[in-house]
């Protein structure tokens, strides 16, 4: 099992434990974590599952793919450590992952 900590923009924390294999977006949505809309259901085509990931953790994930990059570039809250959580696969290496959700999804 993999533990993930979601921190809202106001600091509210939500800790979830999930099986590896799904996406970080699903880990949030299926555990009632607020702040992630996921309008397209996980097909990397709406950018409403935007999260910020600590640099250390970014290194342990597959890099941003071109489609994800295109969608992220449409976000006005884009930062260097922005990711779409539907594109991050939960693996054992990500146990303890910390992600922050933005104030708004757009």
């Amino acid at each position: 099992m993999v533990n993930i900590l979601f921190i809202e923009h106001d600091g509210t924390e939500h800790s979830v434990t999930v099986e590896p294999g799904g996406s970080v977006m699903l880990a949030a949505v299926t555990n009632g974590v607020p702040g992630i809309d996921a309008d397209c259901g996980g097909s990397c085509s709406c950018a409403t599952c935007h999260v910020y990931v600590n640099q250390e953790w970014l290194k342990r994930m597959d890099p941003v793919n071109p489609i994800e990059e295109a969608m992220l570039s449409m976000s006005s809250d884009r930062k260097e450590n922005s990711r779409l959580s539907c594109q991050i696969t939960v693996t054992d290496e990500l146990d303890g992952l910390v992600v922050t959700t933005p104030e708004f999804q757009f």
């Binding site: 295109a70 570039s73 449409m74 006005s76 809250d77 104030e103 708004f104 999804q105 757009f106």
Partner: peptide
């Protein structure tokens, strides 16, 4: 992408608030 980025911030949620 270039043109859209210019105008989209006016309708981004932070501005709408």
């Amino acid at each position: 992408d270039e043109q859209r980025k210019i105008v989209q911030s006016v309708v981004a949620p932070a501005n709408l608030k």
